[in-house]
Design a protein around this nucleic acid. Structure first.
Lengths: 206, 206
DNA sequence: TAGTAATTAGTACATTTGTTCTAAAATCAC
DNA sequence: GTGATTTTAGAACAAATGTACTAATTACTA
């Protein structure tokens, strides 16, 4: 494995474990078994490492996002995409957990993420429209309600990782992801029609 | 104003503005106009200040919590209590925004908050039961669904302040609080019965 | 193989931070 | 007013961190 990748791997591990503010180029260099000077050759500072890891996450998420844009998704795809997205978020969980501090340190991340969330919100609105046209989402709620719902979904999706640290006992990754994916599903339940509910429950039991 | 209060006031301001990790006893002392040695006399370190501010927030929230425990609340009280609670959270927003980092630094806060959230979850379940008995909340969703809903409410309530920093343009406090209180209300909408919806809309338009 | 570029280790320096200590000054109790 | 207590300023110290620089080593290329 290239030194650069070793650094990224160890940095990701330390960020996830002890938090961004406790990690220094020396702590990473020591763990990898290289000198701090060498690390500085690859990454000028920890901010550069964080930025690279952020780009890695975005790349992982982008593949999902593009598929959604290209074709209108059914509910099954939505659930599967959420599973994959949440796993990726978990892998890079320090980014969501320390996000405000990171945005303060690296404004480029804030700008990019802000735009990304704007796009996702629009995507969810399209998905809602499609699910409504199929008769799976309720028609008795107005557009404003669904706009708010999209916002709520985004807030939840950005927040569950921090919640896991604060409120949950430490469990393994799969359990954590499964728990919050279940809550994500629960967000949709009260918006579903009878027909949508049946479709949903069939998918979940699979 | 006592020096101790001046310190707390300035510390709160700096924490909210630039984040916990950028604040030192010296930055606070300089702003207050006292020596670092004097500040250390009142608070051993920044963690001690954070802990005190956390206790202040908890005290502000406790008055709400106790009222809920003593008497079963109606929907109007729920909305008003949310308004007051969200304002208090906004005042001490750095606590929610940097919560994971703070919990790592001060384990006592994590323990206390974890218990507090457990209590709040139980309270919401009681409130749901009451609202159901009044015919305002839907009966066609099972207990598990409402347990998940309570969890979602808590996650949202802890997350909106970070979301405001990340996604929103900087606005004034009242606008921010109003926006997220609106989203809080939207969380309830799809769970309401026809009757509950009418009650709700009447309250909101007031 | 010779030479060039990439990689690595090690060192040094300025800055910041928490922490501790001392002594002066202010306040309070009697 | 006097003595004790509280409050304050200031200095000093160790530890950690980002940063920059040098020289040695390795890898690559022609």
């Amino acid at each position: 494995m290239r030194t650069k990748d070793k650094i990224l791997q160890e940095a990701l591990h330390q960020f996830n474990t002890i938090g961004t503010d406790q990690v220094s180029i020396r702590s990473i260099a020591d763990a990898v078994g290289i000198s701090a000077g060498n690390l500085a050759y690859h990454f000028k500072n920890t901010d550069a490492i964080i930025h690279q890891l952020y780009l890695n996450l975005v790349e992982a998420l982008d593949s999902e996002v593009q598929q959604i844009q290209e074709s209108l998704v059914d509910m099954q795809y939505l659930l599967e995409a959420t599973q994959r997205t949440y796993r990726a978020l978990y892998e890079y969980r320090f980014l969501m957990i320390d996000f405000v501090a990171i945005c303060r340190r690296i404004p480029a991340i804030k700008t990019h993420f802000s735009e990304l969330m704007g796009m996702r919100q629009q995507q969810f609105l399209l998905i809602f429209k499609y699910l409504q046209s199929e008769g799976w989402l309720r028609h008795d709620l107005d557009e404003q309600a669904y706009a708010a719902f999209a916002e709520i979904i985004i807030i939840f999706s950005n927040a569950w990782l921090a919640d896991a640290v604060i409120r949950q006992q430490p469990e393994n990754a799969e359990q954590q992801v499964a728990h919050y994916r279940q809550l994500f599903i629960q967000l949709f339940i009260p918006y579903l029609t009878q027909e949508g509910l049946q479709q949903f429950q069939q998918l979940i039991t699979d």
